[in-house]
């Protein structure tokens, strides 16, 4: 007998060690999420994946799955909170989608689409965050950083290079490059690095490919993120024992 919990009234099987989000995605049930990446240890920072367990809320990406949990996710109360989180992220950075190379492939934008976010609503902060175009092949546009730390983790845990780090606290927290000059050209980052592949928004960009795939024909232009997240989730091979 496998262990199960209920997600929006539907039984979901899980394996010990899985978090609620991991088990849900593996079972083909979508919970909106942003800073979670299936290949990395869950981080729990963006809170988009917040679910309700009884009267409490928890980030489903870090919440260990337990037998008998009654979990709510797809309810308007939570989607309204998720909408507000997306709005705050948009107001906090400089997210000018029409001039962003990542537009159409951006998870933040795709979540905005899925949650029907029509406006950031809040007062935009328009922070001053200069670009780093020092590297011959890679552009860093800090204006779009949402502090998910995926590049930090990928560079440290997979590439073994520790090219990126977060510096500062609270509202002053920001992404930095680990080099005496602070510039990307003085690191050993390479185009094949995992850190090049994980940015959910448009911060870490390969130069000279910007609009080779036209706007309107990109990943989340095709299908909503809620449909595609399940494609990325690790699943058991067909025929494997439950």
């Amino acid at each position: 007998m496998s262990d199960t919990f209920h997600l929006d009234g539907v039984e979901v099987k899980f394996e010990h060690g899985q978090t609620v989000l991991q088990a849900a995605l593996a079972a083909g049930k979508y919970i909106p999420h942003l800073c979670y990446h299936p290949e990395f240890k869950p981080h729990g920072s963006c809170k988009l994946c917040t679910v309700k367990i009884g009267s409490r809320t928890a980030a489903s990406c870090t919440m260990p799955a337990e037998t008998g949990l009654e979990i709510e996710s797809g309810i308007e109360e939570l989607n309204a909170l998720r909408r507000t989180l997306v709005q705050m992220l948009f107001a906090e950075g400089n997210h000018f989608c029409p001039s962003c190379e990542k537009s159409g492939n951006c998870m933040l934008q795709a979540l905005g689409y899925d949650l029907e976010v029509h406006t950031a609503g809040f007062r935009h902060q328009y922070p001053d965050r200069p670009l780093d175009a020092s590297h011959p092949d890679i552009l860093l546009d800090f204006n779009r950083c949402i502090l998910c730390e995926l590049c930090v983790r990928a560079s440290g845990e997979v590439d073994g290079k520790n090219v990126f780090a977060l510096s500062g606290r609270g509202a002053t927290k920001h992404l930095i490059v680990n080099a005496a000059s602070g510039q990307l050209k003085d690191t050993d980052i390479a185009l094949g690095d995992k850190a090049m592949q994980v940015c959910p928004v448009g911060v870490i960009l390969k130069k000279r490919i910007g609009f080779s795939i036209p706007i309107g024909e990109r990943r989340y232009d095709q299908r909503p993120i809620s449909a595609q997240a399940l494609d990325d989730a690790p699943r058991k091979p067909a025929g494997a024992k439950p």
Binding site: F96, C97, S99, T119, A120, H124, P127
Partner: peptide
């Protein structure tokens, strides 16, 4: 009704804001 990126986010003209 605010229509379009500029009305909603400031858009391209707002890229002078910093």
């Amino acid at each position: 009704i605010a229509i379009g990126s500029c009305a909603i986010t400031g858009g391209l003209p707002a890229q002078r804001n910093h």
